[in-house]
Design a protein around this nucleic acid. Structure first.
Lengths: 397, 397
DNA sequence: GGTCTTAGTTCACGACCTGCATGAAGCCCG
DNA sequence: CGGGCTTCATGCAGGTCGTGAACTAAGACC
């Protein structure tokens, strides 16, 4: 099972955590409302809140008239109590951003890379960390932690397998941690983007959702009962290599008929070329835009795009049937390009593949944060830990 | 979120629950071991256990020599503390069984049905209940509850949609509850079978698993972090209608290329007939056996079976990739027939469709409880409630 | 200025778990 | 065969917690 709560002190921590999480997630709230939301007694709320205020985690933020009585004082998590850093490690760049607890970007640094070697990446992350600390003027001991989102499978803070980076068994957390006192957490980039959409984007309010990530390749982040589902060894969410066309096109993973071999941007362009279409752009994103823009004039482009929506719909429908989510978020840069133009077509096509019951319960939405939200999502890792610990910041030796 | 634990009394209930669950699931244990397992202090274990013993929930069961010290007294949940009933509502029969808490069958009743009308089913369940009570001689106020597994989608104890039974929006729990004082819980039959395999069959010990159910149709029960995953509105696990062959065979759900249209027993036999094969049996199960037995002599049969294993493997691989389970259990009568003969072939074929990483972390096993375990699984519902409540039996008015 | 309404706080109380000391029960060895 | 040893189990004092009820705070309305 999970963490056992046994002693009476654990209970307090758990209640602090519930309270703090509620304040953080559901915006400014009064003590009264907090009592209702957490089903704690007014006395306990008062008690805990005064403790949180004394520690500086929570602060009062104005008040609201109540109907003819004493006005209620609103509470919020103090944005400047601590700060967090998020880093994105992708194929082509390392991006580091520093946020306050309200997730405002205070500083940002970016380093293009061509050959993503672990040592180089570590150097850039640490360099970025120093840079954002310096340019924001935030005291480094006020930084809660650094979350790192990597384009690969992460198992317990080590990168186990990252095909696109060519990494295998890289102990990334330890490597970064050697260069700083600040706690490091490493996780899968797709999950981080999903986390960002769940907290601040199209996934807000949902507890059972799937955030899809359609770029050159295809992936997904699964959210079950309000928290990210990782599977037994953290590699859940490999949606791209789901067989949807048995015996079909060969995928770069080696198998036949994977969704990615039809709906990934690389595959879409390849299918277009095979069908006789041509694009002038060499950049994948520009090429896909070119293809999408050609739909009005080119029969071939129209067919390819139409088929792509169909394949994608089958993949989405499989998610709908299997996990019965309340929301599916279409994300990733290619997902965004397709979704902007064909979201309604996609929704309809999903209906043809999915069962009536789960289909009627799901809403399929476009992502809201664009492609650059990996660092934002990664920065939620230390925030999540803070909320889980009820605002108790572990002493740094 | 889930149930909030706030007061100090909830803590005790939660600890009782942890203790009782550990005793139930991990067999006879001494107080000392319980302390280690639950990370409760020895004093608390002693305290709680003596309470549980006084209430009759737990009993001592012999002792074991320790190395040169006082022997440890083993504790177990008293099998005769209470009793539970499980019922299976299928297309062709209603089956009711009465168990003690060790899940020994004490009495059983079965009613064949042809037209599964709700009223008839309710009558049979109630009749079965009286029968098993009478023939086992168990006092009816000692029966914790009746779990009912229905072949259809269940949302909050009401049957929302059951294609095979032709039901829609049947408030089954209320209907049964009108005829008895004993608490009723209704759930999906596939999930119940999954539950049975997880507790007593091939799923034992796994916390992230999928129990597949291959019969005439195809379904699955998802288990995440040790408990059944139901999705947002309880219809998760519709594995059979996952598209695996885009634009392929028409499924009875109306869509094209569903897994069920290839790997469900009905579809397999249909594909066999289309390919020119013939079977003499009219019963589906006998027919499938006939087909499987013909593999050695008939080219057509061999091809069909070979292809079936392939399609099924693609479906299983999709589960492996998407949810990264530690175990997949092949269940259902057709799954059992196929698995007995081709489990190794299936495992290998899954490897061709799944990613290396998650494939290496999963074990694919044959179910152990056969096809008749729905009632057993359903009977775990009241047991689960008992464990969750820490052995506190709600007073019946 | 009195009364009403709503928000938030204080405090005694009962309930809880833990650590430590103590009791229980068998083994080992002289 | 009895004292010491080891391991298991329990009783008790102490500290912590959330709750309910009484109480204070702060504004609206007449």
């Amino acid at each position: 099972m999970d963490v056992r709560r046994t002693t009476v002190r654990d209970m307090r921590r758990s209640n602090r955590s519930a309270l703090l999480t509620t304040i953080y997630r559901e915006g400014p709230l009064s003590r009264h409302e907090l009592g209702l939301r957490t089903s704690l007694s007014a006395a306990s709320v008062s008690n805990l809140v005064s403790e949180l205020i004394a520690e500086g985690v929570v602060e009062e933020a104005g008040s609201v008239d109540s109907e003819g009585g004493r006005p209620r004082v609103l509470l919020r998590v103090s944005p400047t109590f601590r700060y967090v850093v998020g880093a994105e490690v992708g194929e082509t760049r390392v991006k580091v951003e520093l946020f306050d607890l309200a997730m405002n970007v205070l500083a940002s640094a970016e380093y293009p890379i061509d050959a993503p070697q672990p040592a180089v990446v570590v150097k850039h992350v640490l360099e970025g960390l120093s840079t954002v600390i310096a340019s924001s003027g935030v005291r480094s001991d006020l930084i809660l932690g650094v979350g790192v989102g990597v384009a690969g499978v992460v198992e317990g803070n080590a990168v186990v397998d990252a095909q696109t980076l060519g990494w295998d068994a890289v102990p990334l957390r330890e490597m970064i941690a050697e260069g700083t006192e600040i706690p490091i957490q490493v996780d899968n980039g797709a999950n981080m983007l999903g986390q960002a959409e769940m907290w601040f984007g199209a996934g807000r309010g949902a507890t059972d959702a799937v955030v899809t990530l359609i770029g050159s390749g295809v992936g997904a982040a699964l959210v079950a009962d309000g928290s990210s589902y990782r599977g037994t060894r953290s590699s859940a969410g490999e949606w791209g290599h789901m067989t949807i066309a048995y015996g079909g096109r060969q995928c770069r993973c080696g198998a036949l008929g994977c969704l990615e071999a039809y709906a990934g941007a690389e595959a879409v362009l390849e299918r277009y070329r095979e069908a006789g279409g041509t694009v002038s752009a060499t950049d994948e994103e520009a090429a896909l835009i070119e293809l999408l823009d050609a739909v009005g004039t080119s029969e071939v482009a129209a067919t390819i795009v139409d088929e792509t929506v169909g394949y994608l719909a089958a993949g989405v429908a499989n998610l709908v049937n299997l996990v019965n989510p309340e929301r599916i978020v279409l994300g990733g840069w290619a997902g965004l390009l397709l979704g902007e133009r064909y979201l309604d077509d996609l929704r309809a096509a999903v209906g043809e593949h999915a069962l009536r019951q789960p289909y009627s319960q799901v809403s399929i939405e476009l992502c809201e944060l664009g492609r650059d939200a990996v660092a934002l999502g990664a920065a939620t890792l230390p925030v999540l830990r803070l909320l889980r610990d009820g605002g108790v910041v572990p002493a740094r030796s």
